[in-house]
């Protein structure tokens, strides 16, 4: 069954702090979603609501039409992988896999063993004796091999070195292609995962800033470079995210739909047009006043 997640005017208050304010969105279908936000934006809080770790203060979350909180049927279909503290976990790697096998109905044991080999995890070692990177790799193995209809990876790569992260991304995309499911990736390493995601949500200070397909978001960003006067004259009425100047050359990053007639006008004026990466768009869209260089 295809997963569907619906958030309707969801807010979360912890003590006096508004952690999430009035979020509404719908994740429809087995896609790979990216959840991006700066430190403290509320990413993990939102994901912990989806994973039934908490209840929203206001509003409702529905997963396949059901409220997930304290709901076994929904909880067994949602897997939340995050960089948890495992310093007191004395179970062995092998035991962790056996536990997952009992609890996860779609568990693929052969696949789990293949991943254990790829990540070079020692089956007989206790989890708290593993390095942080290996602990994360074990969580990733369990997250992938569980094949839960909703799989959430919240900075699941903590401590993993670049080759291990590369294995993670490779296995994630391969397994998703063969067993499509709803996957939500929350990450700060945007450039590493930009090409994996189909839709992206950006949250900023507890609010949903945007939810769009990666393609359409990328199509909204454009950098324009050329002589100062010309760039200023032609971009005056546009939403400028960032300006930089070097001598007589100015480069601005603009955000918004630009008609092709307008693009041709830029090109005719000899201005250089280029794309903006998802990472840059994210940085400038979530930059707050007083932070600019």
């Amino acid at each position: 069954m295809t997963a569907e997640i619906k958030a309707d005017h969801v807010s979360l208050r912890l003590g006096k702090q508004n952690v999430l304010s009035d979020l509404s969105f719908q994740l429809k279908g087995d896609k790979i979603y990216g959840l991006l936000g700066r430190n403290g934006a509320g990413k993990t809080s939102l994901l912990s609501l989806l994973a039934s770790f908490r209840e929203p203060t206001e509003g409702t979350i529905l997963i396949n039409g059901e409220i997930p909180f304290e709901n076994d049927r929904v909880m067994s279909r949602v897997n939340f992988v995050y960089g948890r503290d495992q310093s007191s976990e004395t179970e062995k790697v092998k035991g962790m896999l056996e536990f997952a096998e009992r609890y996860r109905p779609n568990w693929d044991g052969a696949y789990a063993l293949k991943l254990v080999k790829r990540f070079k995890l020692p089956m007989d070692q206790k989890v708290n004796a593993l390095s942080k990177g290996k602990q994360s790799a074990l969580d990733v193995v369990i997250g992938l091999a569980s094949r839960t209809p909703v799989t959430i990876f919240d900075e699941a790569y903590l401590g993993m070195d670049a080759p291990s992260r590369s294995i993670f991304y490779e296995e994630l995309i391969k397994d998703y292609a063969e067993h499509p499911r709803c996957m939500i990736l929350s990450t700060h390493l945007i450039s590493e995962v930009a090409s994996l995601m189909e839709e992206v949500m950006i949250i900023d200070r507890g609010k949903l800033l945007l939810h769009e397909s990666v393609d359409s978001l990328m199509a909204h960003g454009l950098s324009v470079t050329g002589p100062v006067e010309q760039v200023d004259a032609l971009t005056r009425d546009l939403h400028v995210l960032k300006e930089q100047q070097l001598g007589r050359t100015k480069s601005v990053m603009i955000y918004g739909q630009l008609e092709s007639a307008r693009q041709s006008e830029f090109e005719a004026a000899g201005l250089e047009l280029g794309p903006i990466s998802l990472q840059e768009l994210f940085i400038y869209l979530t930059e707050h006043e007083g932070e600019e260089a």
């Binding site: 896609k31 490779e170 995309i173 391969k174 292609a177 090409s195 995601m197 189909e198 393609d215």
Partner: peptide, 14 residues
Amino acid sequence: TNQFAAFYKINPAT
């Protein structure tokens, strides 16, 4: 498309 996706580590929809 799945082979392309795995090879280039991109989303199969892309």
